[in-house]
């Protein structure tokens, strides 16, 4: 590393990012800070979004940057959520300790399942990711004395954050806490994807055979990405448990794995900000469509996916980028 301190390096934006984009990014974060003051009624919803953005960001590391398509990412989210919830009921309800444990547990599950699954690819990997998540879901359902089974873990409460900030009923502490975690995770992921390691992940995504032929240990590299993504998904799960004081069996489900994939794709994968765009869009659409009949929401999601894959590859951010490029070209002419 150069003479700059690690902290300074982590905070600096990567080279080659334009000024407008930097300003846009900064104002986005600042605007998020103002949510509890400006629209207090929406703070719990905003918190939910922040948690899902973190979850989708963790998936982006796999799907967008490494080209690993998993159908069982909820397994890791659920692991984090259950770890935090069970610890709080039985051992300690300190939010930071349980969050770290949730991350560690998810990373461990990621290491164990990933080290098996990543030996395969294509259909076998897809089916293994489904099977692994399915098994965890079943196990959690069966071990109802520990996990609450179908009813989930109810009434999980946590001590004040850092011993000072109570988790209040308006959800302000919860929101700022989640937002801080998301910001830290975002800085970390941004660093990582702009490092030689992150570039090598893109290389694997583009052409894994060629990466092997330049001497890259693909399996180890993929596994590292998988474990990192697992830890972040676990953190998202732990935050979910802490800020909603509830862990649902649904947090391990195939539906959640599908939802988070759709959120990411909707925003645009492999772009870092895809999760930030996709999650709010998804949740607003859900709010709008699911009110009358859940069937409308299924239809909405299905149409989103079809339109995305057939006409808008690259998600909303990809679309914006293409429009801007076309406009730029038109302007110069």
């Amino acid at each position: 590393m150069t003479d700059r301190s690690t902290a300074a390096i982590l905070l600096l934006p990567p080279d080659g990012v334009s000024g407008t984009r930097k300003a846009l990014s900064m104002s986005l974060w600042l605007a998020a800070l103002a949510i509890p003051t400006l629209v207090p009624g929406y703070t719990p919803l905003a918190n939910q979004m922040v948690v899902m953005i973190l979850f989708a960001l963790s998936l982006d590391l796999l799907v967008g940057f490494t080209g690993i398509v998993t159908l069982g990412h909820a397994a890791l989210f659920g692991t984090g959520a259950y770890t935090a919830g069970i610890l709080a009921l039985r051992l300690t309800n300190d939010p930071l300790i349980t969050a770290l444990c949730g991350m560690a547990a998810a990373a461990l599950v990621g290491l164990v399942t990933g080290s098996c699954m990543l030996r395969t690819k294509g259909l076998a990997f897809l089916v293994l990711s489904l099977a692994a998540a399915f098994m965890l879901h079943e196990l959690a359902n069966m071990a109802s004395s520990v996990t609450g089974g179908d009813d989930g873990l109810q009434g999980v409460s946590f001590s004040p954050l850092l011993g000072v900030f109570e988790f209040d009923f308006r959800g302000h502490t919860a929101f700022y806490y989640s937002l801080a975690c998301l910001f830290a995770a975002f800085l970390l992921v941004r660093r990582v994807v702009n490092s030689p390691f992150g570039w090598s992940l893109r290389g694997i995504r583009e052409n894994d055979g060629r990466m092997r032929a330049i001497g890259c240990p693909i399996y180890a590299r993929r596994l590292a990405a998988y474990v990192m993504s697992s830890a972040l998904a676990g953190l998202a799960g732990a935050l979910q448990a802490q800020t909603t004081q509830f862990v649902a069996l649904n947090s391990l489900s195939l539906e959640l794995s599908g939802d988070v994939l759709i959120m990411l794709i909707l925003g645009g994968s492999g772009r870092l900000y895809g999760a930030f765009v996709g999650v709010p869009l998804f949740m607003f659409a859900q709010d709008l469509l699911a009110k009358e009949d859940p069937a409308n929401w299924y239809l909405g999601q299905g149409l989103i996916l079809m339109v995305m894959t057939l006409f808008v590859p690259g998600g909303v951010l990809g679309l914006v980028e293409r429009l801007r490029r076309n406009l730029g070209r038109g302007g110069r002419r």
Partner: peptide, 19 residues
């Protein structure tokens, strides 16, 4: 990824219509 997403979309649409 595209094929997975597309067929997921088909699943969801069929579920909605049938419902």
């Amino acid at each position: 990824l595209d094929q997975v997403l597309f067929s997921m979309g088909l699943i969801l649409i069929s579920m909605a219509l049938v419902r």
